[in-house]
Design a protein around this nucleic acid. Structure first.
Lengths: 334, 334
DNA sequence: ACACTTTTTGTTATCGATATCATGTTACCG
DNA sequence: CGGTAACATGATATCGATAACAAAAAGTGT
């Protein structure tokens, strides 16, 4: 196996200095067109592959933007990821991804690893972090964006929406359509802070409307998905019809509930309303269509990108908060 | 903004050489326990953050494993990603992800970018690549793994299953349960090679069983999901019942079809059988449960990791092919 | 106390690209 | 034709961690 091909090798063949090769391979127009063509051709012939590591080292700019997500196995986060990834690609940046599995300690470890790669910005999901994480991020003076939430004390910039408000919209909608005995289906207390915010939003809104106490249906530890919603309802059985509305932490959970409820012979929406969260595909395709909240996962990604763009260009200097409003999407389950 | 803290800074404070600091911060036991404690404490106090870029540059080992996926917005691929990511994390490696959006040209561009980061191995999804991609990968003598497929001419190692065989299983199952007029629902010809392999598998198996020609239902360009399956059936209307089985390229597509078909009043499985692919959550939760094929997305990820482990340890030297057999999972739609 | 091993620390060179400054070459103008 | 601008290329130093070798310090047994 031959050693790797470097600019020096290319330079030797072309009969020029490595500096010229460097210039020729970049968009540097101080190099003669003929020279450039020759350099590129030789580079191609020798199978030269640019070494970003060296560049990152020399220029002290990694070309990375670090992103943490609770999980990629979630169509919403995946959508945001895709938008950010595409946007950054166009800016010549690469995305460095880490998933926290919905745990802040894991996030801390991850942030440490990611920072070691010297990213040019850090994008975190959610507004809930360990003190060490906060210290790490702020100690570097690194542009930071929190997304998918509107934290009370942001680390830096924010692109998100209010989980609490979104839930208030749902509760208002249910009250308006005559529901009073609400139940919330979500993950056990603990890890998932966005889930917790949604739960709190429901409880709060129910109180505001003077409704009886909201029943809590535990779908197990986060992350919860279709099968957990399904199983939670199966565990309860027909008693689920004591409530007249199930407010689910997400569309997959709602679909799981819907399916289980239908198997039990409970009619939706006649006997029971069901709402989801996130405007996942399944909400629109299921039968009946699930009432949900569109959080514009892609829009969040796009806003993150345009924020980053502004930050790198220098046009954004002060902490900015972008509220990507969520909107209620009425379906057939309520 | 103060300049970044380096090992040299830590060394100065401790009163030792940078080399000692380097050793103290690693798992190098040639350094005095007291010295190490002191170094670590000072590093902590100064807010020192390790610089992986420099390390990568010096040692010529990036600590990266590059992975391409068609899309993360697919629960199957996301599952594989998670398994690989977790496994690599335990080996002290970081995963560098790129998504090809199901296009080989995009893959080529991506591979170029990823190789520039000097990864220690490359994991590609699928066995279909441009010539340039093949040349790039093989020219580097870099460990390469193709997954989610069993290519005829592998680039290196392989962890996958036969899409063709899996489809043959489905067709055999449908024939056995009395179906003869098959239709295949998938993306338009072109981009998605795994989808194409599945289509070919169906056609081939149908011929082998002496069935009439398989009807093709086009769900649009890849990637196709619930809404595309749904829309494809809506476009056809009740004519869909001219077939007696819909073989779908994936579970989400199958669910979309199922939902649309139910809205049309066609009874599943009585009037029409439906099959999916991939053992997505929705197959198990939907009503009726969808007959599918379990491809063990997570297992693929785990096998990739253990292969990589073997490669790095040196215990695996020859191209290896791991066939993660897929298994038919009968549901209620057939 | 001496020779010798073991432990601990230090010195120097280096990975590949590029910022910076210096130098050489051609073009252009009056 | 001399002088200056515009263009093109080169020389050198450098980013931070660490491999490889060197050397000092601390034990160890006789």
């Amino acid at each position: 196996m031959s050693a790797r091909v470097t600019m020096r090798d290319v330079a030797r063949v072309v009969g020029m200095s490595p500096m010229t090769v460097s210039r020729a391979l970049r968009e540097d127009n101080t190099v003669n067109a003929k020279t450039r063509a020759r350099v590129r051709q030789v580079a191609e012939e020798l199978g030269y592959v640019y070494d970003s590591t060296s560049q990152a080292f020399r220029t002290q700019k990694s070309g990375f933007v670090a992103v943490t997500l609770p999980s990629v196995n979630n169509a919403n986060f995946a959508e945001t990821f895709r938008a950010v990834s595409n946007g950054l690609g166009q800016m010549g940046l690469q995305l460095l991804l880490g998933s926290t599995n919905y745990r802040v300690e894991k996030e801390e470890e991850l942030v440490r690893q990611l920072l070691a790669r010297n990213p040019e910005a850090l994008v975190l999901t959610g507004g809930h972090h360990t003190d060490a994480t906060r210290a790490l991020v702020q100690g570097r003076g690194l542009p930071a964006i929190e997304m998918w939430d509107l934290p009370a004390e942001p680390l830096g910039h924010v692109v998100g929406f209010s989980n609490t408000e979104a839930m208030a919209d749902i509760v208002a909608h249910l009250v308006q359509t005559g529901r009073r005995k609400l139940a919330f289906v979500g993950a056990s207390e603990g890890a998932d802070s966005r889930g917790a915010a949604r739960r709190a939003g429901v409880v709060q809104a129910a109180q505001a409307h003077g409704l009886p106490e909201v029943a809590m249906i535990d779908a197990g530890p986060a992350p919860v998905s279709m099968r957990h919603g399904h199983a939670a309802i199966e565990a309860i059985g027909r008693d689920v019809a004591r409530n007249d509305a199930l407010i689910c932490v997400s569309d997959p959970v709602a679909f799981g509930c819907l399916s289980a409820v239908q198997r039990l012979g409970v009619r939706v929406p006649n006997d029971l309303a069901i709402t989801g969260f996130g405007a996942f595909e399944v909400a629109k395709v299921s039968n009946p269509r699930i009432t949900t909240v569109n959080v514009q996962a892609e829009e969040i990604g796009r806003e993150v990108v345009s924020l980053l763009q502004g930050i790198f260009e220098g046009s954004i200097n002060t902490p900015t908060c972008v509220d990507v409003k969520s909107t209620l999407v009425p379906g057939e389950t309520s």
